[in-house]
């Protein structure tokens, strides 16, 4: 049992709970969202006590050094004095365009704030109002697009996605914060084969990552498997085929797991098709994005197929209405 001192208020953290769970159980309304170490909404700073390495692992080294960590993934091993961080600065941006990309799917373009630097594949928080925000991946690449580009699927009863689809329009001003996330291309081994598997709008960050790898002159083969149940939910096909025609080492395989006619699509789930064609992933770098169940399973299968744990980049889209 360890004591957590939260801005002067002391609470006891029990054996099996995280620091965040402990705060909430004690009625401390600490802001949080994903509860799995992805969104960084709940980030706090430790002013005393040592933080388990795991709890700050998803953060940038520059943040770790200052004692920042994520209470939602922190099982304390020491008494901790923590304080909430000034919430990540929110930036007001204009909506510069919204267009349909397919069934229940729109592309949203936002003006990129001055000095806003990001890596393709990262995500931002988009605020509907002071209390409701959702994470959206960036599909844009700063070299190719001046704006920030998001792919937004309308979710059943989605309080933010529904609002974006039904109410948001060009010229509106909204607030965002970020960028966040550590699933992006790092210039390292340029010959390393890359495997990217995405479902649904999991394509958005992968599209940025692929173009970033090509932008940096990656020479190893790059394989993208994009899956959906219905062909109608696949998108960006023309752009990806154009990219494939331009770069001989980029391979795009759209996959349909439900009924599909013709031979334009591989039959089956993207993960299955990818691993059937590439059963050995030793030495590969793997990017996984989309449905959390797919990402979890894919991480395990990619690892068992030989990919090193540190070469697997996963971004699970946790869905909230």
């Amino acid at each position: 049992m360890y004591e957590i001192n939260y801005s002067g208020r002391a609470v006891a953290c029990t054996e099996n709970e995280t620091v965040l769970e402990c705060l909430l159980r004690n009625g401390i309304e600490h802001p949080h969202s994903c509860r799995n170490g992805s969104c960084q909404t709940c980030m706090v700073q430790a002013v005393a006590g040592s933080v388990p390495q795991q709890a700050s692992a998803p953060l940038k080294p520059s943040l770790r050094e200052q004692g920042y960590f994520l209470p939602c993934i922190c099982h304390p091993q020491d008494n901790l004095d923590i304080r909430p961080v000034a919430i990540m600065e929110r930036l007001q941006v204009a909506v510069t365009g919204i267009k349909s990309l397919g069934r229940n799917l729109v592309q949203v373009k936002l003006q990129r704030p001055e000095g806003f630097a990001y890596r393709p594949g990262q995500f931002i928080n988009l605020f509907r109002d002071d209390n409701i925000s959702r994470c959206y991946s960036l599909a844009s690449h700063p070299h190719h697009e001046d704006e920030l580009v998001l792919h937004v699927r309308r979710l059943p009863h989605g309080r933010v996605s529904g609002w974006i689809h039904d109410e948001l329009s060009q010229g509106d001003k909204i607030e965002v914060s970020g960028p966040l996330g550590d699933s992006f291309y790092v210039v390292d081994d340029q010959q390393q084969p890359l495997m990217l598997i995405g479902t649904g709008t999991g394509l958005a960050p992968l599209y940025g990552i692929i173009r970033d790898a090509l932008h940096h002159g990656h020479t190893g083969p790059i394989h993208l498997y994009h899956g959906a149940r219905d062909a109608a939910d696949l998108y960006l096909g023309e752009e990806l085929q154009r990219l494939q025609a331009e770069y001989g080492h980029f391979h795009y395989v759209p996959c349909v797991s439900g009924q599909a006619s013709g031979d334009r699509y591989a039959a089956g789930r993207a993960l299955d098709v990818a691993l059937q064609r590439h059963p050995q992933l030793k030495g590969w770098r793997v990017f996984l994005c989309g449905n959390p169940e797919m990402v979890k399973l894919a991480r395990k299968r990619a690892f068992m197929a030989g990919a090193a744990m540190q070469d697997i980049y996963a971004d699970a889209f946790t869905v909230s209405a």
């Binding site: 692992a57 979890k296 395990k300 690892f303 744990m309």
Partner: peptide, 24 residues
């Protein structure tokens, strides 16, 4: 970790948890 995950005698003990955390 690969051996443990593919060992049916014990893989159930390792399966449900977050893999990166497990690897650590």
């Amino acid at each position: 970790y690969r051996k443990v995950l593919s060992d049916e005698r014990i893989s159930d003990f390792f399966d449900a948890v977050d893999m990166e955390r497990q690897a650590a």
